[in-house]
């Protein structure tokens, strides 16, 4: 179906966009690639009266590294991430997962800021970024603040941002030495994942014991879910089949997937368990492989 009528505004700066959003909190939506929003508009699920295109705002599309932090501008596309040598060098887990995100056309237009800000639950990047303790920078007309990405998500398509706030940057600190991360997604004939699972493991180079862990699930609840209990189950231990199985079972219990037309809740939990087990093993392997490297 064609799109409903709406007014189209091109913002030239963050304050300008923020001001517009502040004035019309109910009616205006940010257009930052539009890959998800236009879909909802075509289905008449979203009917914004105004679209505020922020893609023409200069200076929001970059991938930099300084002081041990990778900074990604909010208008950076999936495609940019996929082929960025800097990302490949410093955050290879992202280069690895990007070819599987949606399809090439969505990646060409979809932006990372849009992806995160839309808070669509069936998506790949958030669990990985949360597993790397990513932060986002948000701004309104006059103020900027940093918050952990984990705190952005509130519910299905719902974030903690105020209506006039926009995501401007994503920050990821370079992984510590002896840190390994693996993201696994399970999908069935679809561009969208059914379950996503990111595991980060940092080991002590001497003892080879896990000193820190991140276990983050995607698609199995209203928001990406960090399973701290599973992380605890891994800490202080070397890689063991039993402990990874235990962490996996914890994760499968902790998440809150819904039965939908693609699979039942029960099945999604089963997949969480399998992915988590496999991801823990691979994350450990990656962390250990750095011992030689």
């Amino acid at each position: 179906m064609g799109l409903n009528r709406f007014e189209y505004i091109e913002a030239s700066s963050i304050p300008e966009a923020s001001r517009f959003l502040a004035d019309r909190p109910e009616e205006a939506r940010i257009y930052a690639g539009g890959t998800s929003l236009l879909l909802l508009m075509k289905q008449r699920i979203a009917r914004p009266a105004y679209l505020v295109n922020i893609k023409k705002i200069p200076g929001l599309r970059y991938i930099d590294k300084n002081d041990g932090t990778v900074r990604i501008g909010a208008l950076t596309t999936h495609h940019d991430l996929e082929f960025s040598p800097l990302i490949r060098r410093w955050l290879p887990v992202i280069s690895e997962l990007e070819p599987e995100v949606a399809n090439i056309r969505v990646r060409s237009t979809g932006t990372i800021g849009g992806n995160l800000g839309f808070a669509e639950p069936l998506t790949d990047l958030p669990p990985v970024l949360i597993a790397m303790d990513a932060r986002i920078k948000v701004a309104d007309e006059s103020l900027e603040r940093l918050l952990p990405l984990e705190h952005l998500f509130r519910g299905y398509y719902e974030t903690s941002l105020r209506p006039q706030e926009l995501i401007t940057e994503i920050q990821v600190d370079l992984p510590a030495p002896f840190f390994g991360i693996k993201y696994l997604r399970f999908s069935m004939g679809s561009d969208k994942p059914l379950v996503g699972c990111a595991v980060g493991i940092r080991i002590d180079p001497e003892s080879k014991l896990c000193v820190d862990a991140r276990c983050v699930l995607g698609c199995v609840g209203p928001t990406p879910l960090r399973v701290r209990e599973a992380e605890e189950a891994l800490k202080g231990l070397p890689y063991r089949v039993n402990s990874s199985a235990k962490a996996a079972r914890i994760a499968a219990t902790a998440c809150s997937p819904l039965t939908d037309l693609r699979a039942t809740e029960e099945y999604k939990r089963a997949i969480v368990e399998v992915l988590m087990r496999r991801a823990v093993e691979e994350a450990f392997r990656r962390a250990s492989s750095k011992l030689q490297g």
């Binding site: 189209y8 539009g34 890959t35 236009l38 056309r105 969505v106 237009t109």
Partner: peptide, 27 residues
């Protein structure tokens, strides 16, 4: 499909493939 799934509407925009069904002309 009108949903960026099927690719029948693929065109290259600045050398990158896009679903022209889901790109605003103004954009």
């Amino acid at each position: 499909c009108d949903q960026q799934v099927c690719g029948s509407c693929t065109v290259l925009m600045n050398d990158l493939p896009v679903s022209s069904c889901s790109v605003l002309a103004m954009d």
